[in-house]
């Protein structure tokens, strides 16, 4: 079975989740746990880095939907970054670009959070 793992790195206010491997119905709970870990600790500015993700299934996409509402209610956001064309295509087909901000690089996503913060303050 294909493996999947996540790691989290805090960069100031923003937390970045790095995804690696195959994200499908069987591995989705791992990502769910990672998200709940952040949300439970009050970290609502989340960037997801898809650089090492080789595959995502519909169940994997569902994980992002499960948390976006709660995160946005708390004035945070989930921003997606560094997707391969293949992964982006799956997101794109479902209309995710209409729901999430997707960035070419992780820095852009992180900076976007900082800009918003500066504008807000």
């Amino acid at each position: 079975m294909a493996e999947f793992s996540t790691s989290v790195e805090d960069k100031g206010e923003v937390s970045t989740i790095y995804l690696k491997g195959f994200l499908d119905a069987h591995t989705a709970p791992t990502l769910e746990n990672t998200f709940s870990g952040l949300v439970d600790n009050g970290k609502y500015s989340i960037v997801v880095n898809f650089k090492d993700l080789s595959y995502i299934s519909s169940a994997g996409l569902g994980v992002f939907m499960a948390f976006i509402e709660k995160v946005r209610e708390n004035e945070g956001d989930i921003k997606l970054s560094v997707m391969s064309d293949k992964v982006f295509n799956i997101f794109d087909l479902l209309g995710f670009p209409l729901l999430y901000e997707i960035f070419k690089t992780e820095e852009e996503a992180v900076n976007k959070f900082r800009e918003n913060k500066n504008l807000g303050s």
């Binding site: 939907m65 479902l94 209309g95 995710f96 209409l98």
Partner: peptide, 17 residues
């Protein structure tokens, strides 16, 4: 044609896109 998946968004955003 443009369109978000069913169940992803329940606002006007879905209708408009």
């Amino acid at each position: 044609p443009s369109g978000i998946g069913l169940g992803l968004n329940f606002t006007d955003h879905f209708v408009n896109t």
